[in-house]
């Protein structure tokens, strides 16, 4: 709660909502939502001028996970643009950057009902109907996301014109390793391979940056909303297709390549139909390998938050020993396409 008691938190939030809505506000319940290790999300059940209203508050935690993540103000603008573009996303309402209110910047958005826990989405018997339609829905949403006009979002990370997103990815991964002081034969081998096989990008678009089961709200009808936009950037649309196929995002259904839901080809054909693009399968292969490298290094970065004393946590510590899962997978896939 970053120095605020739950009572103070509720009082401050009530005052804030009164001010921005210019109405009488009574908060009935504040419910913490399952979320990542770097953001703090709460469901707010309130009455605004007597009208029952459900919102979600999304706030920074004192240490953010990654320097490449967007600020809350930037994420707010990205989500607003996605909403206006017709992407399935919660409507954002109010942004507060004044640390005097809740300690750290936050924003308020509409509450969307749905399950974001990947393992439940993939395993829960009651969601079989949702799983049947999710591959096409995900493909359609991605196709729409990749046509979002990013010109007004000039703060988004983007690669220099003379370098492909794949090459920039490799350089950033090296930078992450060096910043952590990690000297790993496995990552050195993987990155050198990735560098020598980096695909050119026929198209550069807006990308969500962390699109996978686990960052979707899913109800019985399938995809209700796309969440967690903090890694949005300008990139190669194929990176999202490869990324969501990574083994770790299959949540136990390892044999179903596309998010534990379907064979990859079904996702790619649906995406090609929805987007009108032709997708080079070998580039998607590369981005899946790259996704494993990135997530494997990120595991080490998460463990470093604990080891450095910044965020003491057994959960973060344990991620350090998960890195090898992604190293193994990337090594295995490279072995199949040829070292």
């Amino acid at each position: 709660m970053s120095n605020l008691s739950i009572e103070d938190f509720e009082v401050k939030l009530t005052e804030y909502l009164c001010q921005v809505t210019d109405s009488a506000v009574k908060i009935d319940a504040l419910i913490p939502l399952a979320g990542g290790a770097s953001r703090d999300s709460w469901r707010i059940d309130a009455r605004i001028d007597g009208q029952p209203t459900r919102y979600v508050m999304r706030r920074d935690l004192p240490t953010s996970m990654s320097d490449s993540a967007l600020s809350r103000a930037q994420e707010f603008r990205v989500m607003a643009a996605a909403y206006d573009h017709g992407v399935r996303v919660a409507k954002v309402r109010y942004l507060c950057e004044d640390p005097a209110v809740l300690g750290l910047p936050f924003f308020i958005m509409d509450f969307v009902e749905g399950i974001s826990i990947g393992r439940k989405v993939i395993q829960d018997a009651g969601l079989a109907g949702a799983r049947a339609v999710l591959p096409e829905q995900m493909a359609e949403q991605l196709a729409r996301i990749h046509t979002l006009n990013a010109d007004p979002l000039d703060f988004l990370p983007r690669s220099p014109v003379d370098q492909s997103p794949a090459r920039i990815f490799v350089r950033r991964a090296y930078d992450m390793l060096d910043a952590l002081g990690v000297k790993s034969p496995a990552f050195e081998f993987l990155l050198r391979w990735a560098d020598q096989h980096a695909p050119d990008a026929p198209a550069i678009t807006f990308v969500h940056g962390d699109f996978r089961v686990g960052n979707l709200l899913v109800d019985s009808g399938g995809l209700a909303a796309v969440i967690d936009w903090e890694f949005a950037h300008i990139g190669d649309p194929r990176e999202e297709l490869g990324y969501l196929c990574m083994r770790d995002w299959r949540f136990g259904a390892d044999h179903l390549h596309a998010g534990g839901l379907a064979p990859r080809e079904r996702l790619l054909r649906a995406y090609e139909t929805a987007s009108g693009r032709t997708i080079d399968r070998a580039a998607v292969d590369w981005w899946e390998i790259a996704g494993n490298i990135f997530w494997g290094i990120t595991c080490l970065a998460q463990a470093d938050r604990h080891l450095s004393g910044r965020d003491p946590s057994v959960e973060l510590a344990s991620l350090g020993r998960r890195s090898v899962e992604m190293q193994m997978e990337a090594l295995r896939l490279i072995g199949k396409v040829g070292i």
Binding site: C245, R247, R250, D254, H255, L256, H257, P263, R264, E265, R266, R269, R281, D285, R332, L333, K336
Partner: peptide
Amino acid sequence: AWEGRNRA
């Protein structure tokens, strides 16, 4: 999954 990645 990877072995069958290009099969429909």
